[in-house]
Nucleic acid binder design. Structure first.
Length: 763
DNA sequence: GAGCAAAAGTTTTTT
DNA sequence: ACTTTTGCTC
């Protein structure tokens, strides 16, 4: 046990004592603030089986009654409850989305609450879509609700956008209802442009987002190693003005603006506020909920405090506690787990504190929790290659074998080795539009045409490396600012068009594009139902039919335009400009054009993903890689009070992804800078009878080194070899001596590594 | 200012 | 393991 750090952390006097137990120290230190506990006496339990209630429903709605008869009494109690304020504490894998949708159906059909009188708030688009689809599937053709009826079903951000747009006081904040949304990338570009155009001195420029976040929570202007001020406070002030002048809001602004507006005038008061994943609510989102309610509003929230793994994003268990402390609220539970076999679930429960009393398995005993020791990550990867081939031959589909990691950095080496060894795998992390230049350009083109003051989108259209005509940078921004200084224009788009005409008349193709963008809204509203946006903008000219990528680009663009079209067909409200603005906002909120069905995990191999990304998913076989102390819990410089508990919940989430088999690995010699050479000490909380351990003998760790990393150090790397680095991607060995392997990595340039430890994989 | 060593930072991710 | 800042020297 790498415990010196722990002893230091807990300030234990007698840290050399053999009986010292870091887990116990951890538990006792954490006890006074046990905020995840739902007190037994606060829980209302079901007292009957609700058969009568179901029979009553079946008189009018036999189909709904049939569905309801599949639920257990805990779930039915929540559905049939008439209490005004219900908090449903749902255990992992207990069917909480099912309860939520049936509650909505029950309220709508039996209690006759119109869908427009419900605000159904989720955190992810996936959850929102799932709920809407399940509701729609319940109509049998006579009357199908349209998006207008479910306009207040969606993510917090989507609903905030909708409410902001409708609110009469929006112009008081300097915005118009045609505002556009800055996604994270656009926000970064927005700030970087401000820094350039105002000549600001900003340190940690490429960590600006983290600086802004830490400023938001602590109001600290200094960051990291900084001892001296820079122009950061100025930047924040400028940003606010610029957002208003460009008519753009970032994700946080959406929520803050809706709170400001609703506080002054409550434009919408639903009869029911229904919230999914309540434990992920942050302070601002809770405020939004309270602004949507008065003393007679009904409240139904589902959540699991044990799966709260987003406190670093502002969610806090205090929110759960506040509702529990409110005597008017009724607390119910869903204790039955339908996912995980019982020995595994038992093991996971030991990571919780007193909570596991309420976690009941419904599945048979199954396998023990396997803990396996490897020398390092590459050795582990080769072990997986063998192991997964065997599993697959025995009939396990690739997509039912998942490998989980604490950090994204850990993934790359596994991806490289799996590819090398022909194991199909997919890294399940969010891809950004920027990685697909043609779709990124289309997004900016449509945004600029629909929001003619969105300066960054305009700039992006004309400075794109592939499809633009100008070079991005300080000179362009300054020239444009100088050009517009003493003139007044209808919009920034018109100004930029005039600027192009005046300074770059030879780029006539792009000059006419600017004009078409300016007239796009009239085109949308004047033309018929079938819009041909591709030909309106004459996109062939920009995709260059002679280029090698032409066909691919064209297919991508047409697919994206079709997605937009399909979205607009779903019977939205408002004029065509508003409909297309809504569609593009959804693209920005989701980060891709698949706004109708989302992105499915394509069944094309073993998913490699972070524990965070795995939340809400389940697999037959789950392997958690590199669970050393220092990785779980992650070693950090600044550790907040709740940090360790959250890391423990994270391990709990990882364990409860598995249906049938779970294996946790740790490394004798981890390549991660922050890892100790011991397994996560959280695992000590799990009794030995639930664990099957496959460890190398502790005393001869050094002798257990596999041949691979040590034996062929200098011989391993040859100039000209193609290699892959977890951070720099693919590169080539330039030279190799006993002291250093020199590799060149495209845009990252040349990097030297110690041959013995280089985190490189030959490809 | 350029050049260098020491010190301190580094995560997770949805919208 | 690698990056970015500070703080010192010249």
């Amino acid at each position: 046990m790498g415990s010196r750090r722990l002893y230091n952390k807990f300030g234990h006097q007698d840290f050399s004592h053999p009986d010292f137990d870091p887990i116990e120290a951890f538990e006792s230190r954490n006890k006074p603030v046990d905020d995840s506990l739902v007190p037994e006496e606060r829980v209302t339990k079901p007292t009957h089986d609700f058969k009568q209630n179901i029979e009553q429903v079946s008189l009018e709605y036999p189909r709904l009654a049939k569905e309801l008869s599949k639920l257990n009494p805990y779930q039915l109690q929540a559905v049939f409850s008439d209490d005004r304020k219900v908090l449903l504490s749902a255990m992992v894998g207990s069917g909480k989305t099912t309860v939520l949708t049936h509650k909505i159906l029950y309220l709508h059909f039996v209690k006759k609450v119109p869908l427009t009188e419900m605000a159904v708030l989720t955190f992810t688009n996936k959850a929102a879509r799932e709920i809407k689809e399940r509701i729609l599937s319940f109509y049998d053709g006579t009357h199908i609700p349209n998006n207008n009826e479910m306009r207040y079903f969606g993510t917090f951000h989507a609903i905030a956008r909708q409410l902001n747009k409708e609110h009469p006081l929006l112009d008081k904040l300097g915005f118009t209802e045609a505002f556009s949304i800055l996604d994270e990338e656009a926000k970064d570009e927005f700030f970087q442009r401000l820094i350039i155009s105002h000549n600001l001195d900003i340190k940690y420029k490429n960590k600006l987002d983290q600086r802004l976040k830490s400023y938001k929570s602590t109001k600290q202007v200094l960051y990291g190693n900084m001892k001296h001020d820079d122009d950061f406070p100025q930047l924040i002030k400028l940003a606010q003005k610029e957002k208003q002048s460009n008519n753009v809001m970032d994700f946080d602004d959406l929520i803050n603006v809706v709170n400001w507006l609703l506080k002054r005038e409550r434009s919408f008061l639903p009869k029911w506020v229904i919230i999914d994943e309540f434990q992920d609510c942050n302070e601002e989102q809770l405020q939004m909920v309270s602004h949507l309610s008065n003393s007679s509003t009904n409240f139904f929230a589902v959540g699991d405090p044990n799966q709260s793994i987003y406190t670093w994003r502002g969610s806090t268990n205090k929110i759960f506690q506040t509702i529990i402390a409110d005597p008017e609220s009724v607390v119910m539970q869903l204790p039955l787990n339908y996912r995980t076999s019982s020995q595994l679930l038992d093991a996971a429960a030991y990571l919780l504190q007193d909570q596991h009393r309420n976690l009941k398995a419904t599945r048979p005993e199954g396998n023990k929790l396997n803990i396996r020791n490897h020398y390092d990550d590459s050795q582990e990867a080769y072990y997986y290659v063998q192991r997964f081939k065997e599993l697959h031959e025995k009939g396990a589909p690739w997509e039912e074998i998942a490998v989980l990691f604490r950090t994204r950095q850990q993934i790359a080496i596994f991806e490289a080795i799996f590819q090398l060894e022909n194991i199909p795998c997919q890294v399940v992390t969010k891809t950004t539009l920027r990685e697909q230049p043609v779709l990124y350009w289309l997004q900016k083109l449509l945004l600029a045409a629909l929001h003619p003051n969105d300066m960054d989108s305009i700039l992006n259209v004309f400075t794109s490396t592939h499809f633009g005509c100008l070079k991005a940078g300080k000179r362009l921004i300054n020239a444009f600012n100088k050009f517009t200084d003493d003139k007044a224009f209808e919009s920034k788009l018109v100004a930029f068009g005039a600027f192009l005409e005046a300074k770059y008349p030879k780029h006539h193709l792009h000059c006419s594009l600017a004009q078409k963008m300016d007239q796009f809204q009239s085109y949308l509203n004047d033309s018929g139902r079938d819009k041909d946006i591709y030909h309106y903008f004459d996109l062939d000219m920009f995709l260059k039919p002679t280029s090698v990528h032409y066909q691919l680009y064209k297919e991508d663009i047409n697919q994206a335009l079709e997605d937009i079209q399909q979205f607009t067909c779903k019977n939205y409200y408002g004029n065509w400009t508003e409909i297309y603005q809504a569609a593009m906002s959804q693209v920005n909120l989701e980060g891709h054009f698949h706004i109708n069905n989302g992105i499915e995990i394509n069944n094309q191999g073993i998913p490699l993903l972070t524990i965070h990304a795995a939340k809400g998913l389940e697999f037959d076989y789950v392997f958690l890689s590199g669970a050393n102390t220092g990785i779980i819990p992650l070693k950090r410089a600044k550790e907040g009070p709740g940090h360790l508990k959250e890391e423990k919940r994270l391990l709990f989430v990882a364990l409860t992804r598995a249906r049938n088999y779970m294996e946790i690995s740790w490394h004798t010699k981890s390549s991660a800078w922050n890892a100790d050479d011991d397994p996560s000490y959280f695992l000590n909380a799990i009794p030995d009878v639930l664990i099957e351990s496959h460890s190398q003998a502790k005393n001869d760790k050094e002798d257990n080194k596999p041949q691979e990393p040590q034996s062929q150090t200098t011989g391993k790397w040859q100039p000209g070899m193609k290699v892959k680095h977890p951070k720099y991607g693919e590169g080539q060995v330039v030279s190799c001596s006993n002291d250093e392997v020199l590799c060149s990595f495209g845009k990252f340039g040349e990097k030297g590594f110690a041959p013995q430890w280089a985190p490189l994989v030959a490809i």
